[in-house]
Nucleic acid binder design. Structure first.
Lengths: 150, 150
DNA sequence: TAAGATTATATCGTTTACGATATAAATGTA
DNA sequence: TACATTTATATCGTAAACGATATAATCTTA
């Protein structure tokens, strides 16, 4: 009897295209981020700091769904690049407060054009604006849902 | 003048929820894959081999959008686990052919229930079936589109 | 207040990703 | 046939991710 393993077929997975598109999208940022001499996860951390100013490591982690085991080394690299400052809170010596240096703040000027460029690159694809909006909505719902149970 | 950097705000990014959902989804596989003693990328490689049987490294890479710099070490680890065999093609000594061992083939039996379990976990979320189908369609379109330009 | 629990980072080890480059086999061409 | 080019893997270095654990500060509560 011919057993049916269709649910294990690559084209029936939801997870695989998710994984692939995430990696491909990150790669699209490559050339732009290279100009700023930062990586994609570093860019995400800077997005948080540009938007919210001084934040603790765990606050950044809450927003990006990352923990100190990932963030600490990443933040140290941003510190080496002189884009951020790391200092212990005086109120609570356990927490480390991350703030932008002038240089890190200024980098925002150079970054501001990136989202537009990424959108342009996506546009050539066979995906409409309304489809993209639906897509983002679903993504965010998924993110919220998954966040709960992990 | 109050400058507007809204396009750099985290909630306006498409890339961030994509990145986050991809990571969260991978984590959902964690407990199930742990039972099989494999990682998520290793699982993807096995999906390819279960579906297509013997494949060259580059063939696997074509399907998963990965290259030898990622696959070679990963495949060596699968070989160490005795789930696959790696042998040079006699027709073309450059290509390495990857095939399943009996043990690797048998692992399919244990894996076959995983997709169902993942779907169940997703279902509790506020995402409908039709929404999920739309979502997958968009993902695959995006994947195809992005694949072209990278 | 002293001891135990909790919290915030940090460290460690393993496994991806991936750009750049190396190596060796196969192919194209003068 | 020689030699350049292309192709298929592999290696190297760097930077994430992340589970597990360590460390130190704070909080709880007996």
């Amino acid at each position: 009897m011919d057993e049916n393993y269709e649910n294990l077929h690559l084209e029936n997975q939801l997870c695989f295209p998710l994984y692939a598109v995430s990696r491909l999208t990150t790669k699209m940022y490559g050339p732009y981020l290279e100009e700023l001499d930062i990586t994609y996860p570093q860019y995400l951390v800077l997005l948080v700091l540009w938007q919210y100013k001084e934040q603790s490591v765990s606050n950044i982690g809450q927003k990006l769904l990352l923990e100190s085991n990932t963030l600490t080394p990443l933040l140290k690299r941003l510190e080496q690049k002189k884009l951020i400052l790391r200092k212990r809170s005086v109120k609570d010596e356990r927490t480390v407060l991350i703030s932008l240096t002038k240089e890190g703040e200024n980098l925002k000027q150079k970054a501001v054009c990136i989202p537009e460029k990424i959108i342009q690159s996506f546009k050539t694809d066979t995906i409409s604006l309304s489809e993209a909006i639906e897509f983002q909505k679903t993504l965010i719902k998924l993110m919220e849902g998954l966040k709960e149970k992990l």
